[in-house]
Design a protein around this nucleic acid. Structure first.
Lengths: 207, 207
DNA sequence: GAACAGTTTAACCAGTTGGTTAATTTTAGG
DNA sequence: CCTAAAATTAACCAACTGGTTAAACTGTTC
């Protein structure tokens, strides 16, 4: 057996390959990514890619599964908690935007690849426990029944909230152009959205 | 000169190529699109592509420019009209969602390609007169000053509205999955959004 | 009907891509 | 040390890609 002596898991060849592949796939998608570029960025020979991950598809699948598997639980944990509705919405928007800020390429990656290979994604890559908004939806219905919020269609409410959190990040360059912001101003603007979106939603829910 | 006798412009070889390229580029993006597939779908030889459009880049540019050039004026016309604010918002959401319903691949195409080649897009493809929301923003500020709507940051309002209109279409498969809808139900759901988003926005703007 | 420009094609080409091979180096264990 | 397994590499390959070429076809004009 061969194991490098002073080498933690993070520096292992397999991990280096995975990290490089993650970068390239997420930024360029399945088609745009080239095995040679992944090899170069990992600092190894192209043949080693196939030694650890048999094919481009397999490597892509590993990356895609990790991306989704990392994002999904955070959301479901939040959405399924038993906090009161207003607090839940506040927390959801805050955390959702924070996560995306730190991983700005992920949403577009997921959306693009789902649109190109929907079957593949839903069969092989998605974890069984994707966050389901049913609990959230029931909670909204209860609040409406109690007269504490304006009557709204809860499914549309969910989509509205997610849309306002995610879309500005995937449309960044367009937003910059349309609003006439430079890079620094855009960063501030996106950070502002945590409170702006929260206020917007809660204002709309007033009875 | 050689011109086919019974042949209108729509059936011309150049148009057939353009239409086929439009389909393929919009669905698969620059990288995913193959010249051979475009030729096949246009029912012609691959060399003819290069006869009419010298290179893949040129063909792509023609398609991209047409896509943007078609979408932008409709929006700006609407956003720059002098209707009262509420009516303008109603119209904007209604028309925006209608347009996207008929061209479901366009938004993701624009966003993906802008993210991959931002410079190229803003230098070569975008028409000078991209819809600028300044007039809309000023109008919102006036309404706030007059106390007719709740104080909101108008830039965030613009982004909120556009997000809620566009995002559900580009995240269609995910929305289907998360909300547990079949294809027909999703279509209804997206149509419902015209009134749902309008109500949601106007409710949030109540003073 | 010959000459001619515009159109279309089959065959081809060079570069790139994902993937393989066989040989070399490194590492662990007796 | 020596050996065998694991890790790594250089060289290679077949398929595909965007793009070219030269020849053939089509219609118009005189």
């Amino acid at each position: 057996m061969a194991k490098k002596e002073n080498q933690n898991i993070a520096d292992s060849t397999e991990q280096k390959i995975f990290d490089a592949a993650h970068e390239v796939f997420v930024q360029k998608g399945m088609d745009g990514a080239k095995m040679q570029e992944i090899a170069d960025r990992a600092g190894i020979n192209k043949a080693l890619l196939h030694y650890y991950y048999r094919s481009k598809d397999k490597l892509y699948e590993a990356v895609a599964r990790a991306v989704i598997g990392r994002a999904a639980p955070m959301i479901s944990q939040l959405i399924e908690s038993d906090k009161p509705l207003e607090e839940k919405i506040r927390h959801f928007i805050e955390i959702y935007i924070s996560i995306i800020s730190k991983n700005p390429f992920i949403p577009l990656f997921i959306i693009s690849e789902i649109n190109k290979h929907p079957d593949h994604f839903f069969e092989k890559i998605l974890p069984a426990e994707l966050p389901k908004p049913q609990i959230f939806i029931r909670q909204v219905e209860e609040e409406i029944a109690a007269g504490r919020i304006r009557p709204v269609n809860p499914k549309h409410l969910v989509i509205n909230i997610v849309s306002m959190c995610v879309f500005p990040f995937i449309a960044k360059p367009m937003a910059r152009f349309a609003l006439g912001l430079n890079s620094a101003e855009l960063k501030i603007f996106l950070e502002e959205r945590k409170v702006q979106v929260t206020e917007f939603v809660l204002a709309s829910l007033r009875p």
